[in-house]
């Protein structure tokens, strides 16, 4: 039995030892926003925050998160209002197919929490582990810059 707080909601779950955190979120909790891409921690489609820090949920065991707080893409918007990062990705064309987007916006949110006004180099270092095959990344950088500007306003 593990205890997880996901997006502010507490859960008690009986999961097999081999269950990854990603599978736990997707299948045990029905939170399918986080995606499995590469399955080896490289692509970032499964990025979630564990106690506020971004990790790859595809290579974390669910038991590893026992007693901790998980934030997924589903937890970013507040009362129907999109998080500024989410809005910026829409406005600036920060996604196309959208499969990497949950991971991108979770990572970008964590970035702006840590560095509210990041430089381009800081954005690129932080987002290094979130692959996107559609955009060529230019508009992801622009989206994050736009979100940072909005947060400043």
């Amino acid at each position: 039995m593990i205890r997880l707080t996901v997006n502010g909601q507490a859960h008690e779950l009986d999961v097999p030892s081999y269950r990854t955190l990603l599978d736990c979120l997707r299948y045990d909790l029905g939170l399918t926003g986080s995606k499995e891409g590469c399955g080896v921690g490289v692509c970032g489609a499964c990025t979630v925050l564990l106690d506020g820090k971004m990790i790859s949920s595809c290579i974390a065991l669910a038991v590893f998160a026992d007693g901790r707080e998980v934030t997924t893409v589903e937890g970013l918007a507040e009362d129907e209002r999109l998080h500024p990062v989410q809005q910026a990705f829409m406005d600036a064309g920060g996604f196309q197919c959208g499969i990497c987007t949950p991971g991108q916006v979770v990572a970008a949110k964590a970035l702006l929490d840590a560095i509210p006004h990041p430089s381009e180099a800081e954005i690129k270092e932080w987002m290094l582990g979130n692959l996107c095959r559609c955009t060529g990344y230019y508009k992801i950088v622009e989206s994050i810059q736009a979100a940072a500007g909005q947060a400043r306003a």
Binding site: L31, T32, G33, S34, T72, V73, E74, L76, A77, L82, Q86, Q87, F89, M90, D91, A92, G93, F95, G98, T101, P102, V105
Partner: peptide, 11 residues
């Protein structure tokens, strides 16, 4: 902007 993409940014 991607007006059609709210579902994609919210998961």
């Amino acid at each position: 902007g991607r007006l059609d993409g709210a579902d994609k940014v919210t998961g």
